[in-house]
C-alpha cells in the first residue's frame, strides 16, 4: 500500500464528506422549492436571491441553537443516535462510483473510495444500519411518540431489507458480480438492465422509499400522528444530523439506482458523465415529486404491501430469472 494511494483515499473521503454535507443542505432547499411550485406557492423567497441563502440561515440556526438533552433520556445513546444516521449514510458512499474515472496530471483518479468486490451488499448493509439512528433515538428519548416511531422503524427495517435484497438478486444473477463497476461495464456490452429486469427495477425503487424513510413510507416520523417521531426530543444540530443523514441517503440511493439499472455512467465520456448526473437528479427529484403528490400510507398498509405484494413478486422474479438463465 503506497503513500499515493493513502493520500488519494483521504482526499476522496474528505471531498465526498464536504460535497454531500453541502448537498444535503441544498437538498432541503430543492425540496422546499419543488414542493412549493407543485403546490402553487413560492417557497423560500426572502433570504438572498430566490431564497438561495435560506440554507445558510438554517445552518446558522441549527449550529447555534441550544443542544437540549431532556432529563429522563438515556444520555449516551440519545447523543450518539443522530451520529449513527449521518455516519452510516456516508460510510455507504465508500463503495459507490460517483463518476467515470479520469486522469489529472498523468495520475488516474477513480472516483470511488474503495472498489470492494461486494460493493452492493456493503452499501445496503451499511445503509440498513442507518435505521439504527431513528430506532435508538426513539428508544432513548423516554417519549411515547418516539417509542412508537422506534417500533415502526424496526418493522420497516426488517421488512424492506427483504424486498431490497430479493429485488437486487435477479440483476446480480445476470451480471455475476456485486461490484457496481462490474454492473456498469456489463451494461455497456449488453444494454441497460432495466430492459431485462423491469420488475426488479420497480420493486427496488419502491423499497428505496422505505429505506430512506420518504413519503409515502414516512411513517417513522409522521407529523400528523406522532409529532416528529424519533426527532421529537431533539433540537439543534443533533436534529440536523438526522436530516443530513436522510438527505445524504436520498442522494446515494439516487446514484445507486441508475448505476444498477440504467446503464450508470456508461463508457465514461464527458457526455455519459453528464447523463449520469441527469439520471441521478431525476431520481432525487422523483423523491420530492412523490412527497408532493402522495399521502402517507398507514403502517398496516405498508406491511401488507411489503409481505403480500412486493416480496412474492420479488421471489417470482428471481425464480423466473433463474429458469431463463438455465
Amino acid at each position: 500500500m503506497d503513500v499515493a494511494y493513502l493520500i488519494a483515499t483521504v482526499v476522496k473521503i474528505v471531498i465526498i464528506l464536504l460535497v454531500f454535507s453541502a448537498l444535503a443542505g441544498f437538498g432541503t432547499y430543492f425540496e422546499r422549492k419543488v414542493l412549493a411550485f407543485m403546490q402553487r406557492r413560492l417557497g423560500p423567497m426572502y433570504v438572498g436571491p430566490y431564497g438561495l441563502l435560506q440554507i445558510a440561515a438554517d445552518g446558522i440556526k441549527l449550529f447555534t441553537k441550544e443542544d437540549i438533552i431532556p432529563a429522563n433520556v438515556v444520555k449516551p445513546i440519545f447523543k450518539i443516535a443522530p451520529v449513527i444516521t449521518a455516519a452510516t449514510a456516508f460510510m455507504a458512499a465508500a463503495a459507490i462510483p460517483f463518476m467515470p474515472s479520469f486522469t489529472i496530471g498523468g495520475y488516474e483518479v477513480k472516483p470511488i473510495v474503495s472498489d470492494i468486490n461486494v460493493g452492493l451488499l456493503y452499501i445496503f448493509g451499511v445503509m440498513g444500519v442507518g435505521l439504527y439512528g431513528p430506532l435508538l433515538g426513539g428508544m432513548a428519548s423516554a417519549n411515547k411518540w418516539s417509542i412508537i416511531s422506534a417500533a415502526r422503524s424496526a418493522a420497516v427495517f426488517i421488512s424492506y431489507e427483504v424486498v431490497t435484497g430479493l429485488s437486487i438478486l435477479a440483476p446480480v444473477m445476470m451480471v455475476g458480480s456485486l461490484s457496481l463497476i462490474d454492473f456498469n461495464n456489463w451494461q455497456i456490452e449488453n444494454g441497460w438492465i432495466v430492459m431485462y429486469q423491469p420488475l426488479a427495477f420497480i420493486l427496488f425503487w419502491i423499497a428505496a422509499f422505505a429505506e430512506t424513510g420518504r413519503t409515502p413510507f414516512h411513517l417513522v416520523a409522521n407529523d400528523h400522528e406522532i409529532i416528529d417521531g424519533f426527532g421529537t426530543e431533539y433540537s439543534g444540530m443533533r436534529w440536523g444530523l438526522f436530516f443530513i443523514g436522510e438527505y445524504a441517503n436520498m442522494f446515494f440511493i439516487s446514484f445507486v439506482i441508475p448505476l444498477i439499472f440504467l446503464g450508470g455512467f456508461g463508457e465514461g465520456t464527458f457526455v455519459d458523465g453528464l447523463l449520469f448526473f441527469g439520471k441521478m437528479a431525476f431520481f432525487f427529484f422523483f423523491f420530492l415529486w412523490t412527497r408532493a403528490a402522495w399521502p402517507d400510507v398507514r403502517p398496516d398498509q405498508l406491511m401488507w404491501l411489503c409481505w403480500k405484494v412486493l416480496m412474492p413478486l420479488a421471489v417470482i422474479n428471481v425464480v423466473i430469472t433463474g429458469i431463463v438463465m438455465m
Binding site: I116, N117, L121, Y122, G125, V126, Y132, M139, A150, I158
Partner: peptide
C-alpha cells in the same frame, strides 16, 4: 473476506434488531 464482512453487517444488524424489539 469482503463477502463475509458484508454478510456479518447485514445479518447481525437485523438479528440484534429483533432483540431491540423484544426489549421494547
Amino acid at each position: 473476506a469482503d463477502f463475509l464482512g458484508a454478510i456479518q453487517i447485514i445479518v447481525y444488524s437485523g438479528a440484534v434488531l429483533a432483540l431491540y424489539a423484544f426489549g421494547m
